[in-house]
């Protein structure tokens, strides 16, 4: 069984008795706990280990599902599991949790803006640049085949927190300018040349800060840096181009100067 030249090398003996007798042979010169991690004490359940040479959760899932399928009606199989199973379960949880936390983040930010500007439209408008940058983010991840893992999954939530700042800054100043009597176009120009500069500097410092991560030799960190840079840029574009355009075209009510009724 263990010698290369021997008949039956590298094979499990054919009969139950032969297996039991080999165990007995071993126990004549081995330690009692040698097999502790491989088989239980009454020799009823063994641990069979297989090595999956892939890190893809998709392939792992496939193997695990096939195994479970095959052993479904086998009374002797107690459990199919292991590190691969944990890993794939973790990935599923992260991805599913991702959608939930994203939705929740947008929802909460929207509510906050609605309260801030006392308007439902304010919430909806400010959600638009966020939605676009989220789309950009996941789109790019798809194109570059960047894995959605624990680190990259946190990104979108961070991005929502950072990205919404620019929109709030812009809207706040824009409303002030409108109230001080400027029309929409003039107010946009005024806001972009004042608060807009601040927003750009803010965004650039964040972007350059995260560019440093691109020099990392550890791939997940490099991906993280890349994605932060891309998503902050898209938030900036959203806040400085998309939002002003919407303000001019739609002329939302909450930004209009309040008429003092006499």
């Amino acid at each position: 069984m263990n010698d290369k030249d021997e008949e039956g090398y590298d094979r499990i003996p054919d009969t139950r008795n032969a297996v039991a007798q080999y165990f007995e042979l071993y126990s004549m010169s081995g330690d009692p706990d040698d097999f502790e991690k491989m088989v239980d004490f009454p020799y009823e359940h063994a641990l069979l280990t297989a090595r999956l040479n892939t890190a893809s959760t998709k392939k792992m899932d496939h193997v695990i599902d096939r195994l479970k399928e095959k052993t479904k009606n086998d009374q002797d199989v107690r459990l199919v599991g292991g590190f691969g199973s944990i890993l794939s379960e973790l990935a599923h949880k992260v991805v599913n949790g991702q959608f939930l936390s994203l939705g929740l983040a947008i929802f909460v930010v929207g509510i906050l803006l609605m309260i801030l500007f006392r308007s439902v439209t304010a919430g909806l408008i400010s959600a638009i640049p966020l939605a676009i940058s989220i789309t950009t983010l996941f789109g790019l991840m798809g194109i570059f085949r960047i894995e959605l893992n624990v680190a990259t999954a946190m990104l979108s939530s961070i991005m929502i927190g950072v990205g919404v700042d620019y929109t709030i800054h812009f809207l706040w100043r824009f409303r002030e300018e409108r109230q001080s009597g400027l029309d929409s176009k003039e107010a946009v120009i005024k806001t972009l040349t004042t608060t807009g500069r601040g927003i750009v500097f803010n965004a650039l410092s964040v972007i350059f800060g995260f560019i440093a991560l691109l020099t990392s030799s550890f791939m997940p960190v490099r991906f993280f840096g890349f994605l932060v840079v891309v998503s902050i840029t898209s938030c900036l574009i959203g806040a400085l181009i998309l939002i002003p355009s919407l303000c001019i075209v739609l002329k939302p009510k909450f930004l209009e100067p309040r008429e003092i009724r006499v």
């Binding site: 003996p13 008795n17 032969a18 007798q21 080999y22 007995e24």
Partner: peptide
Amino acid sequence: DMWLFMPAL
């Protein structure tokens, strides 16, 4: 000196 005989084999 020890010898073990396994009848199944």
